[in-house]
Design a protein around this nucleic acid. Structure first.
Lengths: 215, 215
DNA sequence: TTGGGAGGCTAACGTTGATAGCTAGTATGG
DNA sequence: CCATACTAGCTATCAACGTTAGCCTCCCAA
């Protein structure tokens, strides 16, 4: 993460600065029109504070001191508002996970990534659910966002398939924990450790085989 | 799975027949009142064929040739209908996975479990999503259902934490695949293999250490 | 014969996302 | 300086949703 978060569109440095296999952070949609930005902020706040049931167009309009139909001057649909919130969430998660692997502390990058991911996602349950469940309208996302947000998993495993598998494990854990899906009394710390151990072996072995990062 | 699927309530054989650590299959809610059974069947059909958006009380009533309010003579709410569908789905998945580990074929129990799970869930996307996403009203489920359905993961790994971790991995994979969350062109076969490999080592090692099944 | 429950029905309510059509303000071009 | 056109608000309204209230009709048991 060398890119300046405030960099404006079309002002990115050239690709040459990137380590091969690393992915550039896409532009943050910071320069949104005033009302749009206000609406997205309100949507995120309402969602996180009161859950998805409270996220209605009328409620959103109330929050801005206007009427619901006026929102349609700025968004095509409720789904468009949600999509903007999803973008922000993906940026946040990307930031947090990139930081986790670049400042892993004592526990090593893989464990740092997993615990960071778990902590962030569990403390933003409604945001996480919105961002990660249901069909992804990939074509409407800022190009590169997905790759950039997923990059830490690749960096940490050194292999695309292992990366996807590890991310799937983490996502499964988080979402099942959020939905209260594990039997009561489950020792989830140990479950995370068990999963981490399973993947740690393979990545350690792979990193030790001298082949380095895989394209 | 020695219990007869058609066994009626309170006619289960004594617990002694069970291997320690194994869990008895709960009674299937087969003896539901006629209209209730019809409604649940219709709900499942509509859901699987046309997605969650089509699953409305009016649509369900249409399917039975009655009016929507009449459904409330048999169910407290739409959520109650969905819960019955979820129960059926959990029974189905439990049956399929128990079969997978008891007739593993050439690939071994763990891989058999994973491929069976993947195949079943991907071929019932809407049913799977309904059954596994959102908060679980655990108290309303038939007692034992959850443990029984989760038992194969325990049998295959020999350890409760590894079992939960493996299940989380599988659930994450399925749900992300269903939601089109992996970048286009992903080789998901390899991803499943990578995850399987990560867990296979630990379970093999554990099964080889002589301690056998863990309580 | 009668009483009551089971299971239908119609009418209606409140909430939701969304559209149509009007209007006040503002900026721009002649 | 005025005419035009766009922006962004508004009210009224729609259809669909889950759900409730209240009524009626059939059937079975006392």
């Amino acid at each position: 993460m060398t890119a300046d978060p405030l960099t404006l569109e079309h002002e990115l440095p050239p690709d040459e600065e990137l380590v091969p296999g690393e992915v550039r952070r896409p532009n943050h949609p910071s320069a949104r029109p005033r009302r749009v930005a206000q609406t997205v902020a309100a949507a995120r706040k309402v969602l996180e504070d009161e859950g998805p049931g409270a996220l209605t167009m009328r409620r959103l309009a109330d929050e801005l001191g206007i009427r619901a139909p006026s929102l349609y001057k700025h968004f095509d649909s409720k789904a468009a508002v949600e999509l903007a919130v999803i973008e922000d969430a993906m940026f946040d998660i990307g930031d947090v996970t990139h930081r986790a692997i670049h400042e892993p502390g004592a526990m090593g990058p893989l464990l740092s990534l997993l615990t960071t991911y778990r902590t962030y996602c569990l403390s933003h349950p409604n945001l996480y659910r919105l961002a990660t469940s249901g069909h992804l309208p990939r074509k409407s996302l800022p190009p590169g966002l997905e790759d950039w947000a997923g990059n830490p998993w690749f960096v940490v495993t050194g292999d695309p398939h292992l990366a996807q598998a590890l991310w799937s494990f983490a996502h499964g854990m988080v979402v099942l924990e959020l939905d209260d899906r594990y039997p009561p009394g489950s020792d989830l710390e140990s479950t995370w450790r068990a999963g981490a151990a399973a993947f740690e072996r393979l990545t350690a072995q792979r990193q030790g085989d001298g082949s380095g990062r895989v394209a």
